[in-house]
């Protein structure tokens, strides 16, 4: 089939050696397809650039202006030459278009049996929700299993990019987008945010952790139980670190997008509307579920709601953790 042509040719053309220079590691078979096309276009580009550059430089040297020698008068147009250099590039770009399109469709259509993981982008963290309800700051996947990500954003547009898989998709608020991949060997791969989203845009990264056969399920069970095994404050700290709190709230008193958690519990805070209140369990709970209800003076109302994203017992352990952050 013509669809397998890139793969067949890829095994014949030893262009891969250059990938260390131009392209990152190939984490999936699909990445190899993309690289094959990349190298094909690279070869075509180098050829045409060399052609133009060699002719230009040769003409500059050969026909440089000399005393007493006038320019020649070759024809000012040449129909067949002009048709030739229109038709040949046209054929070449049709070929590039074809392989670009077919390669893209292969990377777009996920197999039926794909494992689905929910992805949420928010300023400035990725959150991955697994089928058992566990939420993790990194993407854990089994090896040799198609994985489909169903992604949405809490706030602005983010871009989900795994360079090693050559996969990228914008994550848009108010709608779902998807990517899928099938990783061929265990390892770790970086995830970047590629759609500009503000102050922490360049720090919005995460890891794909690819588990060897059988270990993904083990990891998932352990990760799902982890919180229940920890003391409440330690579980709260874990949630603070992994669920998007630390991106805007420091624990050392430092300034950030939101108020620091250091010494916050029990403190009297001035609100934006001029009122004053003491930070207690009920205020923290309200600030997590309905962050815009009472905003601390001097801060913007930018926090997304965690309603439905944190369970009651999770909110409770976060409150326990905040109580430990005393000045």
């Amino acid at each position: 089939m013509i669809h397998s042509l890139p793969a067949v040719l890829a095994s014949l053309v030893p262009l891969r050696a250059s990938n260390a220079f131009w392209l990152p590691e190939e984490g999936t078979a699909a990445a190899g397809q993309v690289d094959w096309l990349f190298n094909l276009i690279l070869g075509i580009s180098v050829f045409f650039f060399a052609l133009i550059a060699v002719l230009t430089i040769y003409f500059l040297l050969r026909y440089r202006r000399r005393q007493g020698i006038e320019a020649g008068q070759p024809p000012t147009h040449h129909t067949w030459l002009e048709i030739t250099w229109t038709v040949i590039p046209t054929i070449i770009v049709i070929v590039i278009f074809y392989f670009g399109f077919t390669g893209y469709m292969d990377m777009k259509i996920a197999p039926e049996n794909a494992l689905e993981i929910q992805v949420t982008g928010q300023k400035w963290q990725w959150l991955f929700s697994y089928p058992n309800g566990h939420v993790d700051p990194d993407l854990h996947v089994p090896v040799d299993q198609p994985v489909k990500l169903i992604m949405t954003s809490e706030d602005v547009i983010h871009g989900f990019f795994i360079p090693d898989f050559r996969q990228k998709m914008d994550v848009v608020p108010g709608r779902y987008s998807t990517v899928w991949f099938n990783v061929t060997r265990p390892g770790k791969h970086i995830i970047f945010c590629t759609q500009y989203c503000g102050r922490g845009h360049s720090d919005m990264s995460a890891w794909v952790v690819v588990h060897p056969p059988g270990e993904y399920e083990k990891w998932l069970t352990e990760a799902g139980d982890e919180l229940s095994k920890l003391p409440p404050a330690a579980a709260g700290e874990k949630l603070y670190l992994t669920r998007g709190c630390k991106q805007c709230h420091t624990i050392d008193g430092g300034a950030s997008t939101g108020p620091s958690f250091l010494g916050m519990f029990g403190r009297s805070e001035a609100m934006k509307d001029g009122s004053k209140l003491t930070v207690d369990e009920n205020y923290i709970r309200e600030a997590i579920i309905d962050p815009q209800a009472k905003v601390v003076a001097g801060y913007q109302p930018v926090m997304p709601t965690y309603k439905g994203k944190l369970k009651d017992n999770e909110i409770t352990v976060i409150i326990e953790y905040l109580k430990t952050l005393k000045r």
Partner: peptide
């Protein structure tokens, strides 16, 4: 280099 970006499969990687 626009050819790399016009082709869908390579653009997905190089975009942004």
């Amino acid at each position: 280099t626009g050819l790399f970006l016009g082709a869908l499969a390579t653009d997905v990687h190089l975009h942004d």
